[in-house]
């Protein structure tokens, strides 16, 4: 009996979360990486409060993008190596739904910790407390678009040996609008202005990516597996 799209989505999501939970150290790495990247800037540039407040939103968003990028290598790798992906391809599950669920599970396990750490780091960058909700909300709405666009690159490079650097070259140009709008929204909140419009724009990007990216990554993953 064929399962409906909703059931497939829930089953894949539950399974991936379970696997990630049992190897939770993998999931902690992107947040740790994010922490280190963000720590670099005050040390390398200047620890002055004024300066940090000016660059803070941009650094946090770029850090989130880099953490996403780093985590993407592992998005499909384990499933392809142990044959799970092959079974999913052979089954009659709608593949875009599977990819969407996998990307969501990956986002929950790798990027959500990053978003939890972000406000703490924002305080060390002297961002005003009023700006923190915008930062967190923006990251919650915007980073799914990063993971979804990244999933296309991850699927395209999964069969290749030197995937890492190539993955960045493929997906970063397409990801650019997200940190741009996200950092701008936080900037506005820091300056005490209304960032709603930009948050809507981030939401639009994520919805667009959720609709289209799984189709592309489903087509791409078929190629990676013979």
């Amino acid at each position: 009996m064929a399962a409906g799209p909703g059931q497939v989505f829930a089953a894949v999501l539950r399974r991936d979360l379970q696997v990630a939970w049992r190897r939770w150290s993998d999931a902690a790495n992107p947040a740790l990486f994010f922490l280190l990247v963000v720590t670099l800037f005050p040390l390398a540039l200047s620890p002055k409060a004024e300066f940090l407040r000016a660059i803070g939103p941009g650094v946090l968003w770029v850090g989130a993008l880099l953490a996403t990028l780093m985590a993407l290598n592992l998005l499909f790798r384990a499933d392809v190596d142990d044959g799970t992906m092959e079974q999913l391809l052979l089954s009659d599950c709608p593949l875009p739904i599977v990819m969407l669920a996998k990307t969501l599970a990956h986002w929950i396990t790798t990027i959500l910790p990053v978003i939890v750490v972000a406000p703490v780091l924002a305080i060390t960058y002297h961002l005003p407390p009023e700006a923190l909700p915008t930062l967190v909300l923006g990251l919650l709405i915007g980073t799914p678009a990063l993971s979804l666009v990244g999933s296309i690159g991850a699927a395209l490079t999964v069969g290749l040996r030197q995937g890492g650097a190539l993955l960045a070259v493929l997906v970063v140009p397409l990801m650019l609008p997200v940190p741009m709008f996200g950092a701008r929204a936080t900037d506005l909140a820091v300056a005490g202005e209304d960032p709603t419009g930009l948050l809507y724009l981030l939401g639009a990007l994520s919805v667009l990516a959720a609709g289209l990216a799984p189709l592309a990554s489903a087509a791409a993953i078929r190629l990676g597996i013979d």
């Binding site: 296309i152 395209l156 069969g159 140009p173 397409l174 592309a216 087509a219 791409a220 190629l223």
Partner: peptide, 15 residues
Amino acid sequence: KADQASAILALVGVV
């Protein structure tokens, strides 16, 4: 495979 993979990328990049 290079044909197919790069075709997907080209189509995605049209945005």
